[in-house]
Computed example of a mutant assay.
Amino acid sequence: MDWSAWHDQYDAADSWMARRLRTVQAQVRAALSDAPAGGLKVISLCAGEGRDLLDVLAEHPRRDDVRARLVELDPRNTAVALERAGRAGLHQVEVVTGDASLIDHYEDMTPADLVLICGVFGNITDADVEHTIAACNQLCKTGGTVIWTRHRAEPDRVPLICEWFEAQAFELRWLSAPDAGFGVGVHRFVGAPQPLRRSTRLFEFVGYDVLRQAVAAESLGRNDPTPHDQRGT
């Protein structure tokens, strides 16, 4: 997958990606507006070009309250994010080219008021989704917000993701409609932040295409009545 070219789909106004982006931006805007007065910390995992946060901050009345860190592995995407932040005069935004799955990147930014996990859950295994959610109590402050996305193709994991957040003391604040064509969720942390455990790897970014192939192969195996020893190797 070319994760730089992937962003081109945002420029098609009627694409599901553009609609999802607008939805995420609306929730980012609301989270910033509803946050307590004073300085705010925002972190974004696998931030891409940073459109979900940077385009909102550029015009938000609380832009100067926000200190943000965007972590993204593809240097082409971080170059675009840096250009967008600079053009908007967002001098308190830091863009890091690095592996967003390594929790050490967020050490001095936690606990954060807003955590963005967008474009991640559809590209990692279920076990890693649950593991990442379990670590959100290290990333998010009490009363802070996590905004996340996940596709709703079968198997639809959005209901399970909500259950995993609830099990970690996150309250559901908003969820996109099942027929929206994408999943966007907003959870608020009502528990107590935990110390950040250095050197923790949150997930392995597998990729949507690889995961879909695995699901298709598993489905084929369930539906194929041929005994295993007659299938060959």
Score class of each variant (00 low, 15 high):
A12G: 05
Q230Y: 11
D104Y: 01
P193K: 11
Q138F: 03
A127C: 01
R150C: 10
R150K: 06
Q27W: 13
R197P: 03
A13H: 09
P225G: 07
P193E: 07
A37F: 03
F189T: 01
V186K: 08
C162Y: 00
V120F: 01
V206G: 06
T125V: 10
R19P: 01
G185F: 03
D14S: 14
Q230T: 12
H91W: 05
S176P: 00
N77I: 07
W164Y: 10
L90K: 01
S176A: 13
R51A: 15
V66H: 04
Q194Y: 03
T97H: 05
P227E: 08
L211G: 11
T110D: 08
L211C: 07
H60Y: 05
V120P: 03
C162K: 15
H131N: 13
A217N: 09
F182A: 03
V120C: 08
E49I: 13
P36F: 03
G144A: 07
E130P: 04
G89Q: 01
F121S: 00
P75R: 13
P111E: 04
Q213C: 02
V120Y: 08
E166I: 01
P178K: 14
T233E: 14
L90P: 07
G232D: 09
G48H: 09
L54R: 08
G98C: 09
P36E: 02
E218N: 11
V146S: 10
L45N: 08
I103T: 07
I161Q: 10
E154I: 08
R84H: 14
V71T: 06
V80W: 09
I133S: 05
D126W: 13
E166M: 03
D8K: 14
V66D: 04
A58H: 04
